[in-house]
Structures are given as structure tokens and as C-alpha cells.
């Protein structure tokens, strides 16, 4: 176990380092932030002074090492646009994305998996066929279109749901969350639903495929032969056995949704990380972009690590110290 954690930390370090270099160079190639930062009619002197102030007059490698050196001191730099520390900026935006993503992924899993298992348990029933048709729709309908439709129907036509924003928030441990107030919750429903559509379909398909295969296995036959009820067979045997691929996908989807909820956040003007990164890219806010993408890399590493630990929890064959 110790060796495993050590190995993972080592891998994480290399990935984050490679990511920082890659992003730093890539963003450098995108364009010169000075053009955005300084008004075109500024004098040459002011221009030179600002360039020197941000250290943009030095060669790329030197800029990079200054940047890495600062990070080692916990300083991710200041945003050109917001003129505040990047770490602070990301942390203020994180809770909004976090609650939205968790709501979406949990809905996809808690509703999608049981529905998928049902479709796998009774593959020929009309309900199962309807479920599968729905999941194909979920795969193929573009997120932005579905989001617009949700706004059209629920916000514009019925007027029963708000069309955008976070609504009223309440503070928990000094952080503002929407899900703590009724108004915030009603603001969350549509974007969360929109965000979960694809994951929901994915969970249904995975759960169905796993269940269908397992229903024909000797393990299930033996459990039935011992007189176990169908519910016990499904909940105690099948669910445990299909959970490993499900956890893998859950982890990956959680990561990618946290990092790239861009489309949904833009449509519903949800002030989360996705909107932040889009805004930073358009304004060439380099420190925010670099720090954000490194944060994303770290996020994936942490999630994958947790997923691996969960494997060991779910499957005793992967645990060390066999008898």
C-alpha cells in the first residue's frame, strides 16, 4: 500500500510538472496579453514599464522558471483582468461548480444505475426498450440545445423555473452554496439536469450491459438456486459486481464535469469555473489559464487515486496481503 501511494505521488508530480510546461508554452503561443491589457493609445514608455512589471520582457524559459519558483512558494500569480491572486479567484468560483457537478453526477448515478439495472434485468420488456431509446437520445442530443430547450420550456413558457444565475446562497463553513436555500435550489435544478443528461445515459448503458451479462452467469444462477429473492440477487450480487466499471466512469465523469462544465455554465450564466476559464481565454489572462489547467490535472490525479482506492475496497482480489 505504501509503495502504491508513493508511486502515485511520484506520477502526480511528473504529470503536474509536464502539464505546467505544456500549458505555459501553449498559452504563450496564443497571443500577447499586453495587447489586451494596455490601451492602444498608451505611450511607448508606459508600454515598456507594464511589460517589465509583468516580467514579459524576459525569455520564455526564464519566465517559466520564475513562475515555477513562485508556485513553490504558494503564489500562482495575479490575474491580469481581475487583479487579484489567482488561487483566491479559483477558490471563490470552485463551490459553485462543485455543487452543480455533484448534483449532476449523483443524479446520473442514483437514478441512472437502478434504471439501467432494470433494463438489463428485463431486457425484452417495453419499459426497458423505452429506457434504452431515451439513453440513445441522451447521447446524441447536444448539451447546448437541450439546455436551451429547458430554458424555453420551463423558464420562458411555464415560467416556473429561473433561467440563470445562482439565486440566493447561504453560507456553510464560510463558503456560499446555492443548495442551502429554496431559491438557490430552484436555480440549480435546470443546469444540473442539463449537465447530467449525458452521464445519465452513460450510466444506464453501463449498468444495463453489466446486469445483462451477469444475469446469465453461474454466480446469479447459484444464488437463485439457493432461494435468494430477485431483489437480493440484484442488490447484493449484481450491483457489487458491476460497480467496478461504474466507479471508473463515475470518477472520470466527475473530473471532466468539474473541469469542463463550460457549456452549461455559460448557457445558465452559472458563475463557476467553466465561465471563468472561458472569460480568461478570451481576455488572454495567462496566469488564470495556467493555474486553472494545472488545477484540472491535479484534480484528475486525485480522482483517479480515489477511484483506485475504491477498487480495492470493492474487489477483495485487488487487496494486498492475500491469505
Amino acid at each position: 500500500m505504501f509503495g502504491f501511494i508513493l508511486q502515485r505521488l511520484w506520477q502526480a508530480l511528473i504529470v503536474v510538472l509536464a502539464m505546467s510546461a505544456l500549458v505555459f508554452c501553449g498559452v504563450y503561443a496564443v497571443g500577447n496579453p499586453i495587447d489586451v491589457l494596455i490601451s492602444p493609445d498608451a505611450t511607448q514608455d508606459i508600454r515598456a514599464a507594464v511589460i517589465a512589471q509583468y516580467g514579459l520582457d524576459q525569455p520564455l524559459w526564464q519566465q517559466y522558471f520564475t513562475f515555477v519558483g513562485r508556485i513553490l512558494h504558494g503564489d500562482f500569480g495575479r490575474s491580469f483582468v481581475y487583479n487579484m491572486p489567482v488561487s483566491e479567484l479559483i477558490l471563490t468560483r470552485l463551490p459553485a461548480t462543485l455543487e452543480l457537478t455533484l448534483a449532476a453526477v449523483l443524479f446520473a448515478s442514483l437514478v441512472g444505475i437502478p434504471i439501467g439495472m432494470y433494463a438489463g434485468y428485463k431486457p425484452h420488456s417495453p419499459i426497458s426498450r423505452a429506457i434504452m431509446a431515451l439513453s440513445i437520445l441522451g447521447f446524441s442530443v447536444p448539451t447546448f440545445w437541450f439546455g436551451l430547450m429547458l430554458i424555453m420550456v420551463f423558464a420562458v413558457q411555464c415560467g416556473c423555473m429561473p433561467a440563470g444565475g445562482r439565486g440566493e446562497t447561504a453560507s456553510l463553513f464560510g463558503v456560499d452554496f446555492s443548495f442551502l436555500t429554496g431559491d438557490g435550489l430552484s436555480h440549480m435544478i435546470l443546469p444540473a439536469l442539463n449537465l447530467s443528461l449525458f452521464k445519465f445515459s452513460l450510466m444506464i448503458r453501463l449498468a444495463r450491459a453489466g446486469t445483462r451479462e451477469l444475469m446469465l452467469s453461474d454466480t446469479v444462477k447459484f444464488a437463485r438456486a439457493a432461494g435468494l429473492s430477485e431483489f437480493t440477487v440484484l442488490s447484493r450480487h449484481v450491483l457489487r459486481l458491476i460497480s467496478i466499471p461504474l466507479v471508473t466512469v463515475f470518477g472520470l465523469e466527475l473530473g471532466s464535469t468539474l473541469a469542463f462544465a463550460v457549456v452549461t455554465e455559460t448557457i445558465f450564466s452559472w458563475p463557476g469555473l467553466g465561465k471563468l476559464i472561458i472569460d480568461s481565454i478570451t481576455s488572454l489572462d495567462r496566469p488564470v489559464m495556467v493555474a486553472y489547467l494545472m488545477f484540472v490535472a491535479l484534480l484528475f490525479i486525485v480522482i483517479n487515486f480515489v477511484v483506485d482506492l475504491t477498487y480495492a475496497l470493492l474487489d477483495p482480489r485487488l487487496r494486498k496481503g492475500r491469505a
Binding site: 444462477k221 447459484f222 477483495p316
Partner: peptide, 29 residues
């Protein structure tokens, strides 16, 4: 099933659930 008539299968590698302990599987039965 399991009470008056029970069954033993061919391949013991396939019949027991690999992710549940022996005790749990007996308990379920």
C-alpha cells in the same frame, strides 16, 4: 429452492461471488 431442493454447479470458480466474503454469501443464503 435452497430449502427443499438445492443445487451444486460444475465450476466452483464461477459460482461463488468473488467480491463477497464466504460468510456473507452463506448469510444471504
Amino acid at each position: 429452492r435452497g430449502k427443499t431442493i438445492s443445487m451444486v454447479f460444475q465450476d466452483p470458480m464461477m459460482t461463488l461471488n468473488p467480491v463477497l466474503s464466504i460468510g456473507t454469501q452463506i448469510k444471504l443464503a
